[in-house]
Amino acid sequence: MAHMAYTTPPAPTVGFDLDMTLIDSRPGIHACYLALSERTGTHIDADLAITRLGPPLAEELINWFPQEQLAEMADLYRSMYPSIAIAATPAMAGAREAVAAVQAAGGRAIAVTAKYEPNAKLHLEHLGIHPDEVVGDLWAEQKAEALREHGAGIYVGDHIGDVRGARKADALSVAVATGPCSADELSAAGADVVLADLTEFPGWLAHYRPARA
C-alpha cells in the first residue's frame, strides 16, 4: 500500500503594518502634533489628524504648513517624537501574540511601515514586540519593495494603502478593521481576509497553514 506523505507547508514570512495595526499610535501622535503646534505657533487640529493615520507625515503636514516648510517641520516633528510619543503609545490588542504566532510557527515577522524607521524601532522596543526586521519610510505600493525583498507571502495592515502594497507584492492581504478604514472599505479595496482585530490573527494563521498543505 502506498505510503501517504504529509508535508507541512513552509513557515510563512508575514509583514505587519505599524500604526493602528501593531500599535495604537493615536495618543502619541496627538501629543506630538499639539507640541509641534505650540512650538511653531501654527494651528494643527490634532483630533482631526489622528483620524487619518497611515499615509506619510508630509501628507498630513501639508494641511497645516506651506510646501516650503514641510521638510523642516517633518524633521522637527521627528526630533520631538521620541520624548513625547513613545511612552504614550500602547500596543494594539493581540499585537504581541500575532507576531509571536508567526515566529512560533517557524516563520519570520517583519514590520513594514510609512513611519520614520528609527521611531518605528523605538515603539516596538518600548512595547516588547520583537519582529525579525523593521523597515520604515514605505507607504502603500512602496511597501511591496520590502515585502518582496524579504519574501513575505502575507501582509497584515489596517489601511487600503496596505491592501494595495500587499497586492503589488503578490502577497495575501490580511486586513484588520482597527484603523481609519472600515471592514467594508478594506474588502472593497481587495483584501483577501478581513479580521476585526489582531486577536483573531493567531487562530486564522493556524487554520490557514494546514489548508495550504
Rank of each mutant, 00 (worst) to 15 (best):
M1W: 05
M1L: 11
A2R: 10
T8E: 13
P10T: 14
V14F: 10
D17I: 09
L18Q: 05
S25D: 03
P27F: 08
P27E: 07
L34N: 04
R39T: 06
R39V: 01
T40P: 07
T42V: 13
T42D: 08
D45M: 06
D47I: 05
D47N: 08
A49E: 10
T51W: 07
T51V: 06
R52Y: 08
L53K: 00
G54K: 04
P55D: 07
P55S: 11
P55Y: 05
A58T: 15
E59Q: 06
E59Y: 09
L61P: 12
I62Y: 11
N63D: 13
W64V: 15
F65M: 03
P66I: 08
P66D: 01
P66H: 11
Q67Y: 00
E68D: 05
L70K: 01
A71V: 12
E72Q: 01
E72N: 01
M73Y: 08
Y77P: 03
R78S: 08
M80L: 15
M80V: 09
M80T: 06
I84L: 13
A85S: 06
A85F: 08
I86T: 09
A87Q: 14
A88M: 14
P90Q: 01
M92E: 06
G94V: 03
G94H: 02
A95D: 01
E97S: 09
A101N: 11
A101G: 09
Q103M: 11
Q103G: 11
Q103W: 07
A104F: 00
G107V: 05
R108T: 05
I110G: 00
I110W: 01
I110Y: 02
A111K: 07
V112H: 04
T113E: 04
T113Q: 06
K115N: 11
A120S: 02
A120L: 04
H123W: 08
L124D: 05
L124W: 13
L127A: 01
G128P: 07
I129G: 00
H130W: 14
P131Q: 07
G136Q: 00
G136N: 08
L138W: 15
W139D: 13
A140Q: 13
K143I: 06
E145S: 07
E145R: 09
A146G: 08
L147P: 01
L147M: 03
R148D: 06
E149D: 09
G151L: 15
A152D: 11
Y155I: 12
V156L: 08
V156C: 12
H159L: 04
G161L: 02
D162A: 11
V163L: 09
V163N: 01
V163P: 02
G165D: 09
A166S: 07
A166L: 03
R167A: 08
A171G: 06
L172H: 12
S173N: 06
V174A: 13
V174T: 14
A175C: 03
T178W: 01
C181N: 01
S182T: 03
S182Y: 03
S182H: 01
A183M: 04
L186T: 00
A188G: 02
A188D: 01
A189E: 11
G190Y: 07
A191Y: 00
V194M: 04
A196K: 15
T199L: 07
T199K: 03
T199R: 09
E200Y: 15
E200M: 13
G203I: 13
G203M: 14
L205F: 12
L205I: 12
H207A: 13
H207D: 15
Y208C: 15
Y208R: 14
P210S: 13
A211D: 15
R212C: 14
R212H: 14
R212D: 10
